Simulated scan of single mutants.
Amino acid sequence: MANEHQYRWSTSKSTARSSSTRTTTSLQTEGHRTHAVRHHYASLLIKHGESVKTVSERLGHTNAAMTLNIYTHLWPDSEERTRAAVDKAYADRSADAQPQVDEAA
């Protein structure tokens, strides 16, 4: 069996390193290839709101442009983000505009 440390990605954070090693080890035993595991790791970081810079650093890419070239399809697009922001603003405004019921009456 391959040494689990062989699949660590370049990172400056020991927590990310140990997390990626655990993920790699568990997925490697399920027959997944290292490339698929790296993509899975990146997609988890993106899904949970990590920045392009952070994902780039964790994967050991030379710059954020490289990360965007590969994973840009995983980040929500600006149309989706702006629509969600406007929807949230109107929902918050509607909640604030609800009449207050006097429970003592």
Rank of each mutant, 00 (worst) to 15 (best):
G60V: 03
E4N: 02
Q98N: 02
M1R: 03
T72D: 14
W9Y: 09
Q28M: 13
N3M: 12
S78H: 09
A2S: 11
T21R: 02
A97Q: 05
L45M: 09
E50P: 13
L59I: 05
A65R: 09
H35C: 07
E4H: 04
S51Q: 04
S19D: 15
V55Q: 00
S26F: 11
H5F: 15
R58L: 03
L68F: 14
Q28S: 14
M1A: 06
S51K: 10
L45D: 15
H48D: 02
L44N: 13
A97F: 02
A36V: 09
T29S: 12
T67K: 00
Y7A: 07
V101W: 04
R33E: 14
T25E: 14
H35I: 09
H32W: 13
L44F: 13
R17L: 00
V101A: 03
T25N: 11
R17N: 00
H40I: 01
V55H: 09
H39M: 05
I46S: 02
Q98D: 14
T67I: 03
T25A: 11
E30V: 06
S12Y: 08
Y41S: 09
S19T: 11
R58K: 00
S26G: 15
T11I: 03
A89Q: 07
A105T: 12
H32P: 14
Q6W: 12
M1E: 13
L74E: 12
G49L: 04
R83M: 05
Q28L: 13
N63I: 11
A84V: 08
A16Y: 08
H40S: 01
E103N: 07
S20T: 06
D92Y: 05
K88S: 14
A65M: 13
W9D: 01
R83H: 09
